Simulated assay, not measured.
Amino acid sequence: MTTIAVTGATGHLGRLAVLALLDRGVEPSSIVAAVRTPASAQDLADRGVQVREADYGRPETLQAALAGVDRLLLVSGNEVGRRASGHRNVIDAAKTAGVSLVAYTSILNAGDTTMKLAGEHQETEEALRASGVPFVLLRNGWYTENYTAALAPTLEHGALLGASTGEGRVAPAARQDYAEAAAVVLTGEGHEGQAYELAGDRALTLPELASVIADAAGQPVAYAPMAADEYAGVLAGAGVPAPMAEILADSDLGIDRGELVTDRDDLRRLIGRPTTPVEETIAAALPAAAA
């Protein structure tokens, strides 16, 4: 029986990936939820999923976490500046454990994007190539949830803020879509060596996104473009760590360069259905944002 591990399994994407594996009929005992704090995965343990401690920054936890694992979803970490080294620790542990396939959640257009956010993803992709471990790249585009996370202040001020000029386009998809794609790859065959460019079916400008939010909320919402440094300052003022605030502002400039869209339909093909419309994700997030 194939054993599949998911790192970061209590994070937003990792947890959805575990649930997607269960939905695809994978036996719970064949799934390893590799997490920094096992107690936070009690709900998964209650469903029969194996829960093991795995901290990217503590290599000694990774060997035990990956023992007996056949396939691994390496969900990228969230500690800016420390992600590449942590990912290398996981890759080294996977090699030692004899993992037969590592699926890594990279970033859309990682081969040529110049976004600051891409740097550590590009380092990780190179580490995978050098490792000799069989791998597949899940180059995830923007999550629609990147915007719904700030829906409350967007509605409060009637403004969607960003550093894009408003001319560039982004093709977001629901986090669930990306999780389902990962589950398809982990349970399927023929994916080794592939680099999937994953994004939503519809590309839209940030002014168009603001209009979608306005229609869903039934109130005026306009896109308010800002200079990148100004936008980074707003994000930092809202509690986003300064390094991440700068990266997010720079990512909006990547929208203008066309780096968060793709002409490939890899995501739709993998999940076997259209990607979740942004309208649906925004509508689902409205009650919490309005509370």
Rank of each mutant, 00 (worst) to 15 (best):
V6D: 00
R15W: 01
R15I: 01
L16R: 13
V18Y: 02
L19G: 05
L22V: 07
G25Q: 07
E27S: 14
V32Y: 12
P38M: 01
P38L: 00
A41G: 10
Q42D: 15
R47C: 02
V51Y: 08
D55H: 13
R58D: 13
L62S: 05
A65N: 08
L66D: 12
D70S: 09
L73N: 01
L74S: 09
G77K: 03
R82C: 00
H87E: 08
R88C: 07
A93Q: 12
T96Y: 09
D112K: 07
T113W: 01
T114A: 14
K116D: 14
K116N: 13
Q122R: 15
T124C: 06
E126G: 04
E126Y: 01
R129P: 00
A130S: 12
N140T: 13
L151F: 06
T165V: 04
G168N: 06
A173Q: 06
A182R: 00
A183Y: 02
A183F: 03
L186R: 09
T187A: 06
T187P: 12
E189S: 14
E189F: 03
G190W: 09
A199Q: 08
D201S: 10
P207D: 01
A210Y: 02
A210F: 03
S211C: 00
D215T: 12
D215C: 00
A217F: 12
Q219L: 11
V221D: 12
Y223A: 04
M226S: 14
Y231V: 02
V240K: 12
A242Q: 15
M244I: 15
M244P: 14
E246Q: 15
L253Y: 13
D256P: 06
D263V: 10
R264Y: 11
D265I: 13
R268D: 07
R273G: 05
T275F: 07
V278R: 02
A283G: 01
A284I: 01
A288L: 12
A289S: 05
